[in-house]
Design a protein around this nucleic acid. Structure first.
Lengths: 213, 213
DNA sequence: CAAATTTTTGACCGGTTGGACAAACGTTAG
DNA sequence: CTAACGTTTGTCCAACCGGTCAAAAATTTG
């Protein structure tokens, strides 16, 4: 009769751990396709194979599910950028970063869409993170890229907008997937579209960033 | 006592024309920030300065507002690509296209977000248009670009993914505006961010597309 | 002006939604 | 076995939401 599933000390049962995972997986599916307000607890419960009151036993409010999902997402979402290392070869590092981001768009499109949904609606729930953690990380990496430019390792350009462009182009293949498929048609829109995209983006960014002269 | 605001022959009063515009303007604001399901008729009505039943006198269903909005949007949204002309200088044409798209992201961010919202959720209402009109247009322009490549006017690459990248990078500044602002901070995130973006994108795409050798 | 028509409004309705709750059911430790 | 604790479910509720309707108010037309 505790019911304190989410206390300051979350002592969780085996069942709680399992069921919470099940719910989060189902919620990711539902939220990423319908948005927060467009999703109902009933939909998530059904997708998780349980009743609504049962779901509400594990997460007291709809928002709690979304919040938990968002917290987990952000860590893995920023991991590729965190790995951008200033001790490696600049062009190799950037190529790896682009490739990793594109792989995430391919392998975790639901996470990408969940994030896009949140930002589109003004990021009401993660604004502090954007202005804090994210800005700090981007500024840090922008300085790494700037150093590469000063050292003549890559062409000079705006590091922040370079990062934005990499985000935009790679996430486009997850967020606008239906449009990409529709335009490419059945032949070119199949599984090969990510390899085509990888080739194109490598040419666009890496060739474009090679130092002049 | 007709009430037939939307008949096969839409004989519309002056008041009807005015009020419908008012509603569409309000609905654009509301839909673009909350999504279709996240928006209520009451919100739109209040934003338009009228009561809910009054709004429903001009648009019988919520979906009708969204549909009308979407139809209008698509024409203006694709206009820049339609203008891409194969009689002009290739690099100039592409530069103009990128600039126009970025200007639209700056001047019509709500339209961009409305469109993004629709695509994100699987484009349930405009799928036929994507597979029809849009695909036809993109294929046509891809062939124009291909011809430029064969003629050695620009570097060889994938025209479809080139177009996707231009869409992604330019629309990013509308759809992910809050993120861009948050990361750039108060100084660089001000009005100048679009000029910085324009400079960056021109360098990225145009320099990268100059013919080799 | 007065009749006809258009516009606006308040009241209302049925369905949905997020969430509460207590009782029933299952599990586990002593 | 049994008491304590964890889990599940049916029922219920208040708020919200899309939409209807009839009647009032405003406007147009003759």
């Amino acid at each position: 009769m505790t019911g304190a599933v989410e206390g300051s000390a979350p002592r969780r049962t085996r069942i709680q751990l399992e069921k919470r995972e099940l719910i989060l997986e189902a919620a990711l599916e539902v939220f990423s396709t319908n948005g927060f307000r467009g999703s109902t607890i009933d939909q998530i419960a059904e997708a998780a194979g349980m009743s609504k009151p049962n779901l509400l036993y594990y997460f007291r409010r709809k928002e709690d599910i979304h919040e938990t999902l968002m917290q987990r997402l952000l860590d893995t979402w920023l991991a590729p950028l965190r790995e951008l290392d200033d001790i490696g070869d600049p062009l190799t590092e950037l190529r790896s970063y682009i490739r990793r981001k594109l792989e995430m768009a391919r392998d975790f499109p639901r996470e990408s869409r969940l994030f896009a949904n949140e930002i589109l609606q003004g990021a009401p729930r993660i604004m502090p993170m954007l202005e804090g953690e994210l800005k700090t990380l981007v500024d840090e990496k922008a300085n790494v890229i700037k150093a590469w430019m000063r050292a003549g390792k890559i062409a000079r350009t705006d590091p922040w907008h370079l990062i934005f462009s990499i985000w935009a182009t790679t996430q486009h293949y997850a967020d606008f997937d239906v449009q990409v498929r529709a335009v490419l048609g059945p032949d070119r829109g199949g599984d090969g579209r990510f390899e085509d995209a990888a080739r194109f983006l490598e040419q666009l960014f890496i060739d474009g960033l090679k130092p002049k002269g």
